[in-house]
Design a protein around this nucleic acid. Structure first.
Length: 461
RNA sequence: GAAGGUGUAGCUCAGUUGGUUAGAGCGCCAGAUUGUGGUUCUGGAGGUCGUGGGUUCGAUCCCCAUCACUUUCCCCA
């Protein structure tokens, strides 16, 4: 027999039971909040037609799509000429399917396909793995999970408010207290470009500004110069980027700066409305202190399809990138021939959240998912005696198992110990004679003889 | 696409200026304790030193190639 060296595809991971318990804890927390806000689950296939995915992520993105070779003789219809034209032209001929690259495009495809039957505004959340043919690095995988929630078919700023509320609730439920929701608005960035007298270079401005906290103001200015910004226009933006203070402080300064920028005014107006709605939903709460909001002019987010409010969440005690982000877009489905479908969405990065909770030791001690009580297996007679009792405990919804082999008790107890099973029931001849079972508490080592009904009472308390 | 780093026991890693028998901690197995884990003590198993080639009397160590993993830049979550 051919022996295979067991190994993983690089950039992929196994999730052991210990890790899955923790991941599920995070996912359940998120799911519960999403559903509380009226979002419903959606799943789409792992594989999509290649043509659905290509052209949506830019040229570099297209290269990172995992393609699937056609089944059967995929070279059947390929001519020598096809070969000579190179891999770029050959690829779509031998690969018609690919693994999804993100959740947004499949979602857009779904909305476009079902626009006739969906009720708008349509709210969905989607938690599924996505694949990227990238070389893996720290915190970057070739298979990883995205956790998206979107509303399409409305321009209402109530959606943005809900997102802020959901982020707060999820993080609070996970026990994270020191975090910041950075918020900005694409139109404000456009306003910024207008102030600089470079209204047509918003995209360049965004790309450069996005790196601000990473590479510092000097390098950003350098990059902006390279991208054709004039020195005096840089001088106009620079003090704005360094603005400090509360929303109201910044707003006043920006309003005067933006008096000739329609876009800038609109951005300010939107954010102000969002904050106003938030305050109405819960008066007396402070934007910065209670909602963890931080209006950050330097927040840009690389993705070009955002058109309205954008946000990103940072955990302050942990030096890790953002754990959540999102924004409003005007045209989710345009590339599928369905125009004018606006929406807003955001997503949680659960791998990063996992690391955050691990570092801050915020995972609950008892996840309550493991076995509560184990029967030892002394011999065949005891095993038969135990079986109906096992059934009885399980009927009481108590997580119960019986050790499968008549191994030495030392081994059986060792197993219970490693599995952190809190109670063990020992059944031997004495126990069977009196119908009193030895019930051992593994935490403190105390044990006593009890009837099965007494044991159930203890376990159900 | 570019530049580095690392591959030695199940895991984390020492080590060898080239020399007989390659080590530690943890884990695993067994015993002390024949009906009791987590502590302690004793013993044991477990290695093609990533792979292929070269230099050499001799290579885990030096050289070359190759593969795997990993980090940074670019980009991204």
């Amino acid at each position: 027999m051919q022996v295979t060296q067991p190994s993983l595809v690089r950039g992929t991971r196994d999730f052991s039971p210990e890790i899955m318990v923790k991941r599920n804890y995070i996912l359940q927390t998120i799911r519960k909040v999403f559903e509380k806000f009226g979002f419903l689950p959606l799943e789409t296939p792992s594989i999509e037609k290649l043509e659905v995915l290509t052209g949506k992520y830019g040229e570099e993105g297209d290269q990172l799509i995992f393609k699937i070779l056609n089944s059967g003789n995929y070279l059947d219809k390929i001519s020598n000429q096809d070969f000579e034209e190179g891999s770029k032209k050959l690829t779509p001929k031998i690969s018609e399917k690919a693994l999804r690259y993100d959740l947004t495009v499949p979602f857009a495809r779904f909305v476009a396909m079902n626009r006739g039957t969906l009720t708008f505004p349509f709210k969905r959340y989607q938690i599924q793995p996505v694949w990227r043919g990238d070389t893996p690095q720290r915190g970057r995988y070739r298979e990883f999970y995205q956790c998206d929630a979107d509303v399409v078919g409305t321009k209402s700023l109530l959606c943005e408010v809900d997102i802020i509320l959901m982020i707060n609730e999820v993080l609070k439920n996970l026990g994270v207290s020191d975090f910041t929701i950075k918020i900005n608005h694409r139109q404000i960035l456009t306003g910024l470009a207008d102030v600089a007298g470079a209204g047509n270079k918003v995209a360049d401005l965004c790309v450069a500004i996005d790196k601000l906290d990473k590479i510092g103001i000097e390098k950003v200015e350098l990059e902006l110069k390279e991208r054709g910004f004039e020195a005096d226009s840089l001088a106009k933006i620079q003090p704005l980027l360094a603005l400090k203070g509360s929303w109201n402080d910044k707003k006043q300064i920006l309003e005067t700066q933006f008096n000739s920028s329609e876009a800038g005014k609109k951005g300010i107006e939107d954010l102000n409305k969002i904050f106003e709605l938030l305050s109405i939903s819960q008066p007396n709460l402070n934007l910065e202190k209670d909602w963890h909001l931080d209006f950050d002019l330097t927040l840009a987010r690389g993705l070009s399809y955002y058109t309205g409010a954008i946000f990103e969440v940072k955990i302050n005690q942990v030096s890790i990138g953002s754990v959540s982000g999102g924004g409003r877009y005007d045209n989710l489905t345009a590339s599928f021939g369905v125009p004018d479908l606006a929406g807003v969405g955001f997503s949680f990065g659960i791998d990063r959240l996992f690391d955050v909770l691990e570092e801050l030791k915020l995972f609950p001690e008892n996840t309550q998912t493991s076995t509560q009580v184990m029967f030892t297996n002394f011999d065949e007679i005891a095993e038969k005696y135990a079986l109906p009792l096992v059934k009885k405990l399980r009927d009481e919804n108590i997580k119960t198992e019986i050790y499968p082999d008549s191994a030495k008790l030392k081994k059986q107890f060792g197993y219970a110990d490693v599995r952190k099973i809190p109670y063990v029931i020992v059944i031997g001849s004495d126990e069977m004679q009196n119908n009193l079972l030895t019930f051992r508490n593994m935490q403190n080592g105390e044990q006593q003889k009890m009837s099965i009904d007494e044991i159930i009472e203890v376990l159900k308390k």
